[in-house]
Design a protein around this nucleic acid. Sequence first.
RNA 1: ACUCGGGUGGUGGAACUGGUAGACACGCAGGACUUAAAAUCCUGUUCGCAGUAAUGCGAGUGACGGUUCAAUUCCGUUCCCGAGUACCA
Length: 938
Amino acid sequence: MEYSFRKIEQSWQEKWKTNKTYQVQNPQEGQVSKPKYYVLDMFPYPSGAGLHVGHPLGYIASDIYSRYKRLKGFNVLHPMGFDSFGLPAEQYALETGQHPATTTTKNIATFKAQLDKIGFCYDWEREVMTSDPSYYKWTQWIFLQLFNSYFDLPSKKAKPITELITIFETNGSQSLYFYNNASFSAVDWNSFEEKKKQEILMDFRLCFSKYGEVNWCEALGTVLANDEVINGLSERGGHPVEKKKMRQWYLRITNYAERLLAGLETVAFSDSMKEMQRNWIGKSEGAEMDFNIKNSNSQISVYTTRPDTIFGVDFMVLAPEHELVNSITSANQKESIEAYLKYVKSRSERERLSEVKQITGCFTGAYAINPFDGKEIPIWIAEYVLAGYGTGAIMAVPCGDQRDFSFAQHFTIPITNIIGDFYTGTEANPTKEARLQNSGFLNDLLMKDAIAVAIDKIEALGIGKRKVNYRMRDAGFSRQRYWGEPFPIIWNEGTAIPIDATELPLELPHVDKYGPGPDGEGPLANLKDWINLSNGRRETSTMPGYAGSSWYFLRYMDPHNKDTFCDRKLSDYWNQVDLYIGGTEHAVGHLLYSRMWTKVLFDLGYIGFDEPFKKLLNQGMITGKSFFFEIDHNPNATDSTKKIVSYNKDSQTNSFQRLKYGHQFVDSTGKLTRASLDQYNTAHPLDAVQLPIEWKEDGTEVFIFLKEESEKMSKSKFNVDNPDDLCEKYGADTFRMYEMFLGPVEASKPWDTKGIEGVHRFLRKLWRLFFDDIKGKVWNDELPTETELKILHRTIKKIEEDTERFSFNTAVSTFMIAVNELADSKCNKKEILEKILILLAPYAPHIAEELWQQLGNSGSVLDAAYPIFNPVLLVESSKDYPVSINGKLRTSLSLSLDLEQAAVEAIVLQNEMVQKWLEGKPPKKIIFVKNKMINVVI
RNA sequence: ACUCGGGUGGUGGAACUGGUAGACACGCAGGACUUAAAAUCCUGUUCGCAGUAAUGCGAGUGACGGUUCAAUUCCGUUCCCGAGUACCA
């Protein structure tokens, strides 16, 4: 009886389905429930391309851990669903004319079939899909909660906006609740018209609408969030992005900046992941202070983290967009300033970013007055100051800031030195360790101490205050797109009126065309019947991709509830996600948004925890190998290491020709032969590679060396491997174990199918411990020997330790060692093998189930009792000690573990090898570490 | 430029708190079984030198230096690769 994995895997996948093996039970009333464990994979977008071997890496890891936890007696929630709204589906719809709902359904079916082939233990009855009205009903409902809440500053938490209205009605706006930098009394508030009241309230809602500069992407016809823009180009498609003023919805995530930072201390994310989030939030502490302007009533407010350098301010710089630019510019500088503003406008975001080093700017002709020494400070405008950060204006201290220094040099602005020898005159020195000079009341203070002194003085004089700044912006929450959640909002005379929660879901209407509406609005704007209502006009934007994915982990707990997004009893039971596995690409976006939503839902009392993910494990990327022909116009290149091959005499430039799926045709040395090239050309007639006629080698055969590079797997790079093919060829169990065997889950590694045979061989070897191809059943009921028990218990210990610390690659090799040892000692004993199967079940579930049943057990191996490690069995009486001389290993000695230093020394000195090295002299010292090693120092 | 990872055989990688570097696998070489192949099994495989051999000696975890009886592991300097951020005042 041989290991026919195809039959076994198919039959077990069917059995799991019919027996509902993976159905997860919520705790029943009055029952003693098992401890819970929640394992979650990052929400996949069901792309049309299907899965490649890089995707399942994290899924396999989470599946192993889920099964392991189940065996260990936990009630494990391990769901899967689809983030099915979003740009790619719509983009695809635009290109093919198919409705996104149709393509999405089709893609999900493909995805699920692929996942099931790998044998994952998902409870599909809990599947959720963001584009399903029964799901987005609750996304819209949460939006309404955000819309109807504000961030209460004294308690630092979200509260219903009705409480803020009460505050306004009774006390007016206190200093904490400035509106447009001013406050109003209760009498004022009560006299305001409803429209004005709503405008004010909009300024406090956690999800709010305002006109703002947005990242507008013409090619995609939509607005993008900051993290969807990379170097001035869209993350998806790489199209140019420009700034545009539009009415948009925003998430007031900045209010949560402090708690998002603090929360990082309570979760187990990798340091780099935490660091990325911290950088994104970008907290800085300093002061905001006002400068008077010579011959003007206006003031310029600047933000600085270094108020200690106030006496080193040699000029000021405003962002070109700063509102004061026009009013302060002097008559004779007007022309230059206008020319400069024109130049700035002409430059795209892309150019500004790519030419960071270029110094440009223009003097306004105006002067600010230093409040401490009355010095006149010239005011400039320059691109390097960003309108969006701080106050959009800076005080420039060239001796301490390199950008200010370069600017001063470029425009020959005199530089004041306030740090003595610390400043060399050739570059700025940002030190905080210098003692201040030329600095009035701060003279002789250490800079780091002077910071606080300066702020105190600024506050005492009433010209500014201590201020914390965040780099993070409020997140754009609307998209001019079709395939997303419609906003449950109706606009009436400029006032946003929320739809009553009882009317949700507001279903996404059907459209036939996905083109944009008028004035930059989304496709929904074209549906006149849908948008125009008797009481106003519907919001035509839809929510961004991250809306649905910010709370999906809660819906899995209670996926079919029609009355609430998630029953509080269930969220109290399942609680936080214990283990969250996914890629680093979601470091800032998704993780920050879902962390914020969790905090809001917590503040409002809907859930009982304020961090969604307890532990985050980042899977590394599996890179694919891409192969290129390098085209070189030097046919006489002799450098054999260059791997240059094809000579294209028509081409005068060096370029690369990508070889589609090249790895299938290349041998282990990276060589392509004439025969395989012909094969390749037959398979890809459209991309056939023409060899240059001049190219000859060996007279008979043409060898082509390919340039090889590892890069991210993607269909467009022809470097993907499909898991289906590997499951078909070797089986899902082999595929699962091989992906794990490749290396640590967190590490990025190149994909190579070369080693998969070894894993497959291991499973066959395991099978042969139970069944012989000819003899059939070979397992027996004999009692195990001490050695066999030792093998078993060593394995139990190591598998448990490795699984607990997510070291799946070493766990796989532990299994290999165990099977090798059992095969060597011809152990076919059920008592041993059965336990091994239980250990193996998380890793290779199909073969484990099959053999478990073959041994005469009924039910799933997942319900078996996990073997308990018995340390007594591993206790040794002696040890083979390594004996080093001066730290270099020379020999070994088998000694009883009872022996102490003195006895060991005596034996060691007797040793022939030791005597040889001692040459008759006594040793200086003998180091003996019990159960470790011996070192003789000469 | 800054921050965070990482450099170990021909390859993927192992060595968890300093204690026998290279587990496990791939590949390669040789052998057994076979008419032959597949499958399976056995042996060898870090490099160099010596030896028929068992073995011995030397070098060796990017490079240089330090701490230590002992360093892949700790410290300093430096080089390279990857990821993220990027005029944030």
